[in-house]
Write a protein that binds this DNA or RNA. Sequence first.
DNA 1: ATCGGTGCAAAGGGTTTGCAGGGTA
DNA 2: TACCCTGCAAACCCTTTGCACCGAT
Lengths: 131, 131
Amino acid sequence: MKPQNPRRNTRQREAIRDVLLSANRPLAPQEVVGLVRSTVPSLGIATVYRTLKEYVEDGWLVPITVAGSIRYELAQMEHHHHFYCRSCDKTYSLPGCTGELSRLLPSGFVMSSHDLTINGLCPSCSEAPSG
Amino acid sequence: MKPQNPRRNTRQREAIRDVLLSANRPLAPQEVVGLVRSTVPSLGIATVYRTLKEYVEDGWLVPITVAGSIRYELAQMEHHHHFYCRSCDKTYSLPGCTGELSRLLPSGFVMSSHDLTINGLCPSCSEAPSG
DNA sequence: ATCGGTGCAAAGGGTTTGCAGGGTA
DNA sequence: TACCCTGCAAACCCTTTGCACCGAT
């Protein structure tokens, strides 16, 4: 749409990029703020939202919705699904896919994509069950 | 938790119950307001939110999240999944299930449930493609 | 020296809550 | 009549936007 002006390198952007690269799982904006503030304490939440959207526009991140809230993950990944830990609220990526789904479609429905979320307990939380 | 006081029958609650019964698909709060106002024009949005939560507490409805926003469907249904139409934003129920998913779980993850959403075009929208 | 980026604070959109009046039982 | 329910408006939470200052180029 609009011609992208050149992006500048700032401490904030580098730090946001780094936490997403090293997280190995999708991160919510609040998680990004928490992780980045150890490096850049003054980081404003607005900067996080703006930067995440920027990275999506750039094609480097993709937004996903899990358990009703948005998370961002690296765009380069191949088709996969997600695990949501109902204890710690973290989201993980799961390699692999369910396979054939078209048999679930009544006639008239046209499928373009699908999303699968498995809910449960992640390794940390299943070791030491809560409550 | 708290002892349920007896529920009163009001025009609002009956109308909200009726649209959910006749919709045959999960409804978002805004959809409920729109549908009920043809019967009860004065209906306030707060009443809709309160009543929907009440029905969930009563075990008559269950909340589901599709495409990042909440919808409510009848609780009595057997295990099934959902279809999200990216053109008209409506959600539909799809009978059937994907089958075996545990092969997607890396060790240490414990599955308690799963949710599958197929995205695409519903019959109405695939007949007359938009734009 | 530019002018894009940042942080703060205010604005938005959806959902929840407080309260006084209304309606069911 | 008692008190639950409703509608309005304010409060909330998360996200976006406006604006003046900061800082990368």
